[in-house]
Design a protein around this nucleic acid. Sequence first.
DNA 1: TGCACGATGAAC
DNA 2: TTCATCGTGCAC
Length: 183
Amino acid sequence: MNKLPRTFYDRDTTIVAQELLGKHLVHIKDGSRRIGRIVETEAYLGAHDLAAHSARGRTARTEIMFGPPGFAYVYFIYGMYYCMNVVTEPEGHASAVLLRAVEPVENLLGRSNGPGLLCRAMAIDRQQNGCDLLSNHFFITAPDTIDKISFVRRPRIGVDYAKHWARRLLRFYIKGNPHVSRH
DNA sequence: TGCACGATGAAC
DNA sequence: TTCATCGTGCAC
């Protein structure tokens, strides 16, 4: 089990978003272990990125984004879904990578091709907000079999309000993977 | 204290 | 294209 170290997350957010593709998200809860292979991500580059929640400044909700890298930022959206991010770069940078889709590997609950569905399938909710991803029950690993990942770059989804930031190619997904939310 | 809206997903 | 459903952020 090659758990990703803190230094993996403490890097340029775009690089982290790309390199998370193909990694395994592991969540152990109530005696069940769920594993999903990350196939789609989005990078949120910090307080100057108008699409990022941290662009509105430091609030109770976004506090975790301003903290050190390697922690989970989980938020509630549209009154019924949760979305999970991984905090990146040094403390204070307020950047993160949104996990948008995983491919089922072990014990997932239903579909996982979308940020809301991913959290439901992996049993992730507000309990996981602020969780250290170097813990023993919630973490990301590099799978034993390492294959070359070819990925696609696209504009991020659902951020049309973010002016020119909406057009930046900050969404990444594994080319041709059937578990991606949208092609 | 009130209110518009959202890093979604499903139905029509 | 519409709608479910409610926490968050900002206006008042």
